[in-house]
């Protein structure tokens, strides 16, 4: 009887959170899933159209480009921001540079600034009337100079990726630094006394100690990359042409500008599926890595 009461009280305590979770997470996803099979015209649902929305999205070159751009953002996040975050955190933790507090502050600064402000700042520097462009025009005596990479079909994403790398590496650095500080300094000292090389310390002590947090950061990076919106919207709005389009912009445009809630919902379901799939993949890689370290 007391055990039953305990169970009932657990369920009662969980119920409000469960209802909120169902209401704000599960219910919208289910509604979105249902809407993704509907056709909309003139702000009204005109009926179900099966998989038409999905076929139209997946065969749309603009979506394909958006997906590729999101993949690039994901790669720069997982393979750029996280490793760089670890390196910077390790440098600061081992105090290999002077003024560690100053560098901690300076490196962390970009993540505290709004993405819109960052986008405006970069635009002010590199636009055709920006400081950098004006300076280059002046020293090269070439009044036609503009930063051509922004107009390149292949490379227009690079400035966006660089800004993302600059902006978010610091977030991961702080997370890793906090976790590095949890490793007792005696462990490092003992390793050094035993004659361990720096690479051995990193591979045998640091990375295993950070493995859980690396996994968590990877999940954050993947989900954040797939829903990237604010910086891209403020910096390029997906342009020029559609060169820097991302899936969230595609979703936004179809939902809120073209009022095609069916297509917009289908995009959101694709993003959810991609997130779940990729996070599961990372989970699998993490589990394998854990076994190897064990």
């Amino acid at each position: 009887m007391p055990r039953l009461n305990k169970r009932a009280s657990y369920l009662t305590l969980l119920l409000p959170a469960f209802i909120i979770y169902i209401g704000i997470i599960i219910f919208p996803i289910l509604v979105s899933f249902g809407l993704s099979f509907t056709e909309w015209k003139r702000f009204k649902m005109t009926g179900f159209n099966g998989l038409d929305n999905y076929i139209s999205i997946l065969t749309d070159p603009v979506f394909q480009r958006s997906l590729w751009n999101n993949v690039q953002i994901m790669l720069i996040s997982v393979l750029g921001q996280i490793p760089l975050g670890i390196i910077l955190a390790y440098l600061l933790h081992r105090k290999w540079v002077r003024g560690t507090k100053f560098f901690e502050f300076m490196i962390f600064l970009p993540v505290t600034i709004s993405s819109v402000v960052i986008a405006l700042l970069w635009n002010r520097v590199f636009s055709p009337v920006g400081i950098y462009t004006t300076f280059v025009r002046m020293i090269t005596h070439n009044p036609d100079y503009v930063v051509k990479i922004f107009e390149s079909e292949k490379f227009a994403m690079i400035p966006v990726l660089l800004v993302l790398l600059w902006q978010y590496t610091s977030l991961y650095m702080v997370i890793f630094l906090a976790n590095l500080q949890r490793i007792p300094s005696s462990v490092f000292e003992a390793a050094l006394i035993d004659g361990a090389k720096e690479s051995t310390i990193i591979w045998k002590i640091v990375l295993p100690a950070l493995s859980t947090v690396i996994f968590t950061c990877s999940v954050l990076a993947i989900s954040g990359s797939l829903k990237s919106f604010d910086l891209v919207y403020a910096m390029t709005a997906g342009g020029p042409v559609n060169y820097t389009y991302v899936m969230a912009l595609y979703l936004y445009q179809h939902t809120f500008t073209f009022h095609n809630y069916g297509k917009g919902s289908a995009v959101s379901i694709i993003i959810v599926l991609l997130s779940v799939g990729l996070i599961s993949l990372v989970r699998g890689i993490y589990d394998k890595a854990q076994k190897k370290f064990e």
Binding site: N123, S127, P128, P143, V146, V147, F150
Partner: peptide
């Protein structure tokens, strides 16, 4: 047009 017309706000 000025250079960079499509980059200019």
């Amino acid at each position: 047009f000025s250079p960079g017309v499509n980059q200019m706000s």
